[in-house]
């Protein structure tokens, strides 16, 4: 399945065989690779690790730059659970899944039209797509509030899902357009010869071949939807039943000016779990998608 991945332009494996020299010593190469990986790990992990460790220590961790000092406690997690945070997490996952499915479906259609179908003014259409994503979010909120209030849709799931879909469509469309454009036309032709309608061709041939793009877009949309705060707060914070995690984190219990860093980091750690699961699952499809699609096509 993952055959493609193995032969990609991977710097370590594909390192050129130059004659002689230190670089050819496999141990040196190995060491270099490990060093490089260690840098990547440190860069990515340390801030995240800081967050996780603070969540188990609370403010004690803010005393000393040594974040491994302890004492450790799970008290912050207990508090987060007691505040009904898991309900909010359920809301977030629901909103994000809905957003992802709708955004990717709608974007696939549009992207296919742009990349493949004979329509006029493609440049203008692509440019028009971008419009939805270039407005400063703070400026977007007041008019959105007016609209959703007029429709009586404040504090509902759709008050988040609809704006999220609209705001993620440009990215999804651009990603998918580039991927559809790279699919060899011959494969579609072949399907047509076999008597498939354009729509069937799209569903059976094009979408599977574009799987890496589809899943890359899906991850990005899903993560965006879970992490969005401004719209979730402005349009849907009035009803605790639909409140999402980012808003819940902002309103965690506190006394006075206390910054409840322990519960904030605990809540953020909990949020990251479904995100990582989703990202890893979808990511496997980025890497294995092409081969799978190619076989079926």
């Amino acid at each position: 399945m993952a055959a493609t991945a193995d032969t990609g332009p991977a710097p370590p494996q594909a390192a050129p065989q130059k004659a002689g020299g230190l670089r050819n010593d496999p141990r040196v190469q190995m060491g270099g690779q490990l060093l490089g990986l260690a840098v990547v790990f440190a860069w990515c992990i340390f801030p995240f690790l800081w967050m996780v460790l603070v969540s188990f220590q609370g403010t004690v961790a803010l005393r000393d730059a040594n974040i491994f000092g302890g004492p450790f406690t799970t008290g912050n997690y207990t508090r987060v659970f007691e505040e009904g945070f898991m309900w909010n997490l359920g809301n977030s996952i629901f909103v994000a899944l809905s957003t992802t499915v709708i955004s990717i479906l709608v974007a696939s259609l549009a992207a296919y039209a742009i990349a493949r179908l004979p329509i006029a003014y493609k440049f203008t259409i692509l440019a028009g797509t971008l419009v939805a994503t270039v407005f400063p979010p703070v400026s977007l909120v007041p008019p959105l509030f007016v609209a959703f209030n007029a429709l009586g849709q404040l504090n509902t799931y759709q008050a988040m899902i609809i704006p999220y879909v609209a705001l993620t469509l440009p990215l999804s469309i651009f990603i998918l357009t580039t991927f559809f454009a790279t699919i060899p036309k011959e494969m579609e032709e072949a399907a047509k010869v076999d008597g498939a309608t354009p729509f069937q061709t799209f569903v059976r041939v094009v979408v599977p071949l574009a799987a890496p793009g589809v899943f890359a877009a899906a991850i990005l949309v899903f993560v965006y939807a879970v992490n969005e705060y401004l719209i979730a707060f402005s349009l849907a914070s009035g009803d605790p039943n639909v409140m999402t995690v980012t808003v819940a984190i902002a309103t965690l219990d506190r006394v006075g000016f206390e910054e409840p860093i322990g519960t904030i980091t605990a809540a953020s750690t909990i949020v990251s779990i479904p995100l990582i699961i989703f990202a890893l699952a979808a990511q496997r499809w980025i890497v294995s998608g092409l081969t799978a699609g190619g076989v079926k096509g």
Partner: peptide, 18 residues
Amino acid sequence: GLLAVLALVAAACGPAPD
């Protein structure tokens, strides 16, 4: 499916806001 289950479990673990 896993995520959907997670969502349900999450919601079930915590008390409903009301």
